[in-house]
Design a binder for these strands. Structure first.
Length: 282
DNA sequence: ATGCAGTCCTGTAAGC
DNA sequence: TGCTTACAGGACTGCA
């Protein structure tokens, strides 16, 4: 389940392989992804050169030499890797960009087809279309803006972290890990998060994501980076996927509950429920 | 306006 | 052994 560190790793791996390459042709599979690739888009892309591969939240917008964008989202099981054209084609490859003189290609593989690929006339138009739904990058989130969003809601903090409009790029794994690092119970109502709590959590998110990027992300099931290599951060996860195991800090068994429709892992001792003293104050 | 549940999708694993 | 069922969850839709 690619979140920010995994998507960042894909971008870093693919950049040297893609930037400067010309798209010689484009092949679309029979089964559509979350959205359908429109036939009208193909002639707009073929013949163009790839100028940049950016990352924004969990999105990968590929900027072409005319300023247009092909925006990729890996969904749950998306993979983007380059191959020799002659390499055997794996199952579930839905989209291919043949590059340069046609010996290599970028392949988009997605078992569950929650991913998406779409063309947009400019980066600004693409970004504008997401404006309402995509908040700041975690390192650009200020404690003030975070508190502003938290103060208005009774939603559990875990649900707030998964909301891409609050902060972009955090998914289920890093929401749980950040809450553990901040010592905050996942059901804490947003309104009950204090200023120091918000600052601590903001720092924990940045810390967790930065360390995961350094390890090339976490491979839980299907994730591989742009070079086809798995990530290495999964061994460093403190609570995610460790139900019943001893908390590394205090030895208490890690619990798993269902929250916001997602499995939610936490240490009941290190992440004690808020006592309620702050509730209603301010 | 807010927030929840349902939806999509396939592979894996648990349960009978 | 072989079937059924539950589960994994990012982002969106529809409903209360």
């Amino acid at each position: 389940m690619p979140e920010l560190p995994e998507v960042e790793t894909v971008a870093r791996d693919l950049r040297p392989l893609l930037v400067g390459s010309t798209i010689e042709s484009l092949l679309v599979g029979e089964r559509r992804l979350r959205n359908a690739w429109l036939a009208d888009w193909t002639p707009l892309v073929v013949g163009r050169t790839i100028r940049e591969l950016r990352r924004r939240g969990k999105w990968l917008p590929m900027v072409l030499d005319d300023g247009s964008v092909v925006a990729f989202h890996l969904g749950m099981t998306g993979q983007m890797t380059t191959h020799a054209v002659a390499d055997p084609l794996a199952d579930h490859v839905h989209f291919r960009l043949r590059l340069g003189s046609g010996e290599r290609e970028l392949r988009f593989r997605d078992i569950r087809r929650f991913g998406s690929i779409a063309w947009h006339a400019t980066y600004a138009i693409w970004e504008e279309g997401l404006e309402e739904r995509l908040g700041p990058e975690p390192w650009d989130l200020t404690t003030e803006a975070f508190l502003e969003r938290l103060g208005k809601t009774l939603r559990p903090i875990k649900a707030v972290l998964l909301d891409q409009s609050v902060v972009a790029g955090v998914g289920n794994i890093y929401a749980d890990e950040s809450l553990f690092l901040a010592g905050m119970h996942p059901t804490t109502p947003g309104r009950d998060v204090t200023q120091s709590g918000a600052e601590r959590l903001r720092g924990a998110i940045v810390d967790v994501l930065t360390r995961s990027i350094a390890a090339r992300g976490s491979t839980i099931r299907n994730y591989v980076g742009g070079s086809g290599l798995a990530g290495g951060h999964q061994v460093s996860l403190a609570v995610y996927g460790r139900t019943g195991e001893e908390c590394a800090k205090c030895g208490t068994a890690v619990e798993c509950i269902r929250l916001a429709g997602r499995s939610t892992h936490f240490c009941p001792k290190c992440q004690a429920m808020p006592t309620g003293v702050s509730r209603g104050s301010r």
